[in-house]
Amino acid sequence: MRSRTRENLAGWLFVAPVVAILGLFMLLPILMALWVSLTGWNGQGSPFRAGVPYVGGENYARLFTEDGLARENFMTSIRNNIYYVAVVVPLQTALALGLALAVNKRKTFFRTAFYFPSVTSSVAISVVFLFIFSNSGAVNQVLAFLGADGPQWFTDPRGVIHLLIGDPPAALTGHGMLGLSWWEWLSGPSVAMCAIIALVVWTTSGTFMLMFLAALQNIPRTLDEAAMIDGASRAQRFRKVTLPLLKPTMFLVLTLGLIGTWQVFDQIYVMSQGDPAKTTLTPAFLSYRTAFRDFDYGAGTAISFVLFLIIVLLTLLQRWIMRERKA
């Protein structure tokens, strides 16, 4: 009995620092923020003072139902992030799988080269890409060599769908949904966003490549050999043997991608600050900007919670899919 008590005590002593820190800086902040999102606190003094106005669901209503700048900014950031997710996730997954297949059973040099960008500082690498995509930078010089005129990447707010089909039909500009015209919803990621997308795909593919590689190396050789003996071609073997066995990893990579892409922040902060014309504004950056630049902490935290909800839903979806697969 005594040793049981002692083990209880020892156990809690061992976890105490981690529990204290996670409690103090993860759990408590969430509860405090929940309160702040219901107030009009402007950053002066404590948000728990008597004079801080309680506004109820007002901060949330401004994001969804009330016509105004807050909703326009928020919906713009959601639109931008949807395009960002829709382009980054398929691209990084395909690239990661391609790279994994290419470096499987090969020298580690290539693996190192492809993985290295993922471990470097996001700020530092964003600086490098600012230079590469600058007006007279590497990308535009390569484009010029190929006979194309490169855009001014970080000052071009035009959407790529806009660029493809030209001027908007009046039916789309006149009407809209949730504070943005249909045309604004449909014009695609801006040129500036494309540069950020290129950077992100380039940095994250290496991490996901390693996941695919681990899965590839777990596939028993005999399966592939059996298919070969049965006369299957390389393409057939890939489609009928390798790909089905990679399915769990594919799910993992896709869902991790979905969760991660809603959190893009560092690159936006360093490369564009939401500009040009708000086309690289994302909810994560908008919540930061609303709180720390506009001192509208209530609206800023409300945006954080909506983003939190989006990510929690995606995480639950991931766990649910993974559970289905294991059963």
Binding site: L22, L24, F25, M26, L27, L28, P29, I30, M32, A33, V36, S46, P47, F48, I259, W262, Q263, F265, A284, S287, Y288, A291, F292, Y297, G300, T301, S304, F305, L307, F308, I311, V312, T315
Partner: peptide, 20 residues
Amino acid sequence: AVMAVPGVVLFIPKFLVLNQ
């Protein structure tokens, strides 16, 4: 559960605690 909490939604909350 904590591992799943995305860091970006904690910016303002963390500031609130540090401030407090």
